[in-house]
Amino acid sequence: MDLDAFSAVHSAAWDRLAVLVRRRRLDGAEADELVRLYQEVATHLSTVRSAAPDPVLVTRLSDLLTRARTRISGAHDPAWSDVVRFATVSVPAALYRVRWWTLGVTVAFLLVSVVAGWHVATDAEALAAMGTPSAQERYVQEAFASYYDPDVSFAAMVWTNNAWISALLVAFGVTGVLPAYVLWQNAFSVGTTGGMMAAHGELDLFLTLIAPHGQLELTSVFVAGAAGLKTFWTLVDPGPRRRGAALAQEGRALVTCAVGLVGALALSGIVEGFVTGSGLPWWLKIAIGTVALAAFWTYVLVLGRRAVAAGETGDLDVDRAGAVVPTAG
């Protein structure tokens, strides 16, 4: 298709539609004309996309049709169906697409934690660096367990802290450096604390207090870190897509991941605030944490696999995100 000739033939209709969209008041004939031109330009956009997908023209027509549709139907107020679709399609699709990155982050985190913990538990100098013997004793015998007192304000504090860590991983994921640093810092902290507890014969206390909430809490942090690192890798290797378009798509999907993690972190905060420090048997606490983690992965793997198979990515739809040129590969 000769794009210049096509544009020359139809530009008058496009310009007229743009004029009607900008006009504050329309009479009956102009309103009918607006609807007719909207349908006509939609056909033009479809033709351009299939025959000669010029990015400039596709973007121009997409933007024009979006404004015309808003003028015809009015501003769109999100309905419950939008919320349900976001929660059951967009979020699980975005989380499912980073599942292998999440697995890699999980393995690396656990490896750093175990090595750091083993070093502190078996090396006298490393243990001494954790504080004076009396300070270690107070922490092991009193401070660590007392930290988990059941309380609404404590649950809110935990959720806020974890949400902040995840937000850092999401916001600065494209740097690649900050997600790696934050994950390493947290892995090292968890490992050295566990190593100190083990050196004082309280490894079982450490595990029983960490396991109830830590399964879902740490998984949420792993997902946030994985999403951030995936965005960084998109900058390094965008594949067949243009780098700018690839970053925009992955960045919007990353925000979808972040919104989805709000619910997971809220649930882990509730478990940490009301289950971990409660008087329930230790096995029941761990079982509750395991059920919460299983529910999260069931949500991601079942709904996410279905959504991705249907072509969902967690990104906005074409009308809101803007059209991009199709690429092979």
Results as ranks from 00 to 15, higher is better:
7 S>C: 05
8 A>M: 08
9 V>F: 05
11 S>F: 05
15 D>V: 07
18 A>F: 00
21 V>Q: 04
21 V>A: 06
33 E>I: 03
34 L>D: 05
34 L>R: 09
35 V>G: 02
40 E>H: 13
41 V>H: 03
41 V>G: 05
43 T>M: 08
43 T>S: 09
45 L>C: 05
46 S>Q: 07
57 L>C: 02
61 L>M: 15
67 R>V: 03
71 R>K: 15
75 A>P: 11
75 A>R: 13
78 P>L: 13
84 V>W: 07
85 R>A: 13
85 R>G: 13
93 A>M: 12
118 W>S: 14
125 E>H: 07
126 A>D: 11
126 A>H: 09
140 V>H: 03
140 V>M: 02
148 Y>Q: 01
149 D>K: 10
150 P>E: 03
152 V>N: 09
152 V>Y: 09
155 A>I: 10
156 A>I: 15
157 M>E: 15
166 S>L: 10
171 A>E: 05
172 F>M: 14
184 W>L: 14
191 G>I: 07
200 H>D: 01
210 I>N: 00
211 A>M: 00
212 P>K: 00
218 L>D: 01
223 V>S: 07
223 V>M: 14
228 G>P: 15
237 D>R: 15
242 R>S: 13
243 R>E: 09
253 A>N: 11
254 L>T: 15
259 V>S: 06
259 V>P: 10
261 L>G: 07
268 S>F: 08
271 V>N: 10
272 E>T: 00
276 T>W: 00
276 T>L: 00
279 G>K: 06
281 P>D: 06
286 I>P: 03
287 A>P: 15
289 G>D: 04
299 Y>A: 11
302 V>G: 08
304 G>A: 11
308 V>G: 12
314 G>A: 10
